[in-house]
């Protein structure tokens, strides 16, 4: 399988008043063509920062170290690949559109830029086709953004990204404002897209659906990826303590219990570079976990925990 995206020791740190806030800490990951990956984790664990890092539009108070390689060459100039090769769907649909321009013109922009030889009718046809896929009517194009609800806008965003036929889709919480029917539809469409040779990276809170639709799952905590496995395996045998805690919270697992367990506490802000990030909340922690150095692992599936450091079969 072809490797399409590779994170090499990728970290992002924001300069704040209290010091350097490490949002993403030394991620090493290889993503291949045709993957449908879900990245799950709590709020504040750095998922959106990772998306910003992939896009290349890094804010000025952020320091980036390490590399992201796309097609074996490192990403330097965001304008060259954004939209056509890597398409990113951002999180908030409410403010995602320019309030003074009609939707038609805004969704056309991407098509005009990347497929300049399409005529107006072809563009309209393509837009209508993709909007219909997401259960949207064509006359939504004639409206202004403030006349539409959040769910509709989110589906328009997803549709306009898919229209450009990118090789990688990175979707940051694409199902946040959608009802269940649409959630299933969107994730299914992503699955079909992935099966036709493209890559989909899904970032979500919705753990159950992530396991249901994605082929591989990565669990992120405090800027690090703590476990990366195929979804079926991870659901049956979670290894990292955090993954175990997450999965044990799902209603599907706790079918007969009255109260669902929760993972205590929240993700802390991180100012230090080494040591296991889950140290303070881990039920299985040991003395050495506090100073655990994570080695770069390019194996396809890994668990980043001191307890499993010695395992040779990974």
């Amino acid at each position: 399988m072809e490797e399409i995206l590779k994170f090499k020791n990728f970290s992002m740190a924001y300069n704040t008043n209290k010091g350097k806030l490490i949002a993403v800490n030394k991620i090493n990951l290889s993503i291949f063509k045709g993957d449908y990956i879900a990245i799950i984790g709590e709020s504040g664990c750095g998922k959106s920062s990772l998306v910003t890092g992939i896009s290349g539009l890094i804010p000025k108070n952020c320091e980036v170290s390490g590399e992201i390689e796309y097609n074996k060459s490192s990403i330097k100039n965001p304008d060259k690949f954004l939209g056509k090769d890597i398409s990113i769907i951002m999180q908030e649909p409410m403010n995602a559109f320019n309030p003074t321009i009609k939707i038609l013109k805004q969704t056309e922009e991407g098509l005009k830029k990347h497929y300049p030889f399409m005529t107006k009718e072809e563009r309209l046809k393509r837009m209508a086709f993709f909007l219909n896929k997401f259960y949207l009517e064509g006359d939504v194009l004639r409206k202004y953004p403030f006349q539409l609800s959040g769910g509709i806008k989110q589906r328009i965003l997803i549709a306009s990204s898919m229209m450009l036929n990118p090789k990688i889709i990175v979707a940051d919480e694409p199902t946040a404002s959608l009802d269940l029917d649409n959630v299933k539809n969107v994730l299914n469409i992503f699955k079909i897209y992935a099966e036709s040779g493209n890559t989909v990276i899904l970032i979500t809170h919705d753990i159950l659906n992530a396991f249901k639709f994605a082929s591989k799952v990565a669990v992120m905590y405090a800027g690090e990826i703590v476990e990366y496995k195929p979804s079926g395996e991870m659901f049956k045998n979670p290894e990292h303590p955090y993954t175990k805690a997450l999965i044990s919270c799902l209603p599907a697992v706790n079918k007969n219990k009255k109260f669902l367990p929760v993972v205590d506490g929240t993700v802390e802000e991180r100012y230090f570079e080494s040591g296991c990030p889950f140290y303070n909340r881990c039920p299985l922690k040991k003395e050495e976990c506090g100073s655990y150095f994570k080695e770069p692992l390019f194996n396809e599936y890994f668990v980043s925990c001191y307890l499993y450091k010695q395992r040779k079969d990974l």
């Binding site: 100012y271 230090f272 080494s274 040591g275 140290y279 050495e288 506090g290 100073s291 150095f293």
Partner: peptide, 9 residues
């Protein structure tokens, strides 16, 4: 290995 964890933070 050096213990860099809690004190450092």
């Amino acid at each position: 290995m050096k213990k860099i964890h809690s004190n450092n933070y």
